[in-house]
């Protein structure tokens, strides 16, 4: 699966691509929404590790505008539910992810991204 929880962790690892290699940009993304169990304690623990701007921008590109541009100080239920939906319920099933720096394309098929590089692309 590529949900935004995983997308927020991924970075391009092509040879010599070390800066501006995150976040990968979705292209031709086919989405599926699937309900997941709400776990606010997980979200609170995971929150400090999120690259917030990347998450908000990517969610907006996929059509979800529920997250504020700045991480709120008060973690109320409404915010946590929106965060839950963005991180864990939006599945990118098909499409690809493009590196903003080198342009490398990582394909996604049947919900599984392929992060392999050809031998000459490995750093």
């Amino acid at each position: 699966m590529v949900r935004l929880i995983t997308h927020n962790l991924l970075a391009c690892h092509a040879k010599d691509c070390n800066t501006n290699n995150f976040p990968l940009a979705f292209k031709d993304a086919q989405l599926e929404i699937r309900e997941a169990e709400f776990n606010p304690e997980f979200l609170k623990g995971f929150l400090p590790k999120i690259e917030w701007t990347a998450l908000v921008d990517t969610a907006r590109q996929l059509g979800d505008t529920s997250l504020p541009l700045e991480q709120p100080e008060m973690l109320d239920d409404e915010f946590l539910k929106n965060l839950h939906h963005v991180l864990l319920e939006i599945h990118v099933e098909e499409g690809s992810m493009t590196c903003p720096n080198c342009g490398h394309v990582y394909p996604i098929s049947n919900g599984i991204p392929n992060m392999l590089l050809a031998e000459h692309e490995i750093g």
Binding site: V2, T6, L9, L10, A11, C12, H13, I112, P113, N114, M115, L116, L117, I122
Partner: peptide, 10 residues
């Protein structure tokens, strides 16, 4: 995800 354990795509 499909990947190689010798890579670091993170």
């Amino acid at each position: 995800l499909v990947g190689n354990v010798l890579d670091n795509p993170w």
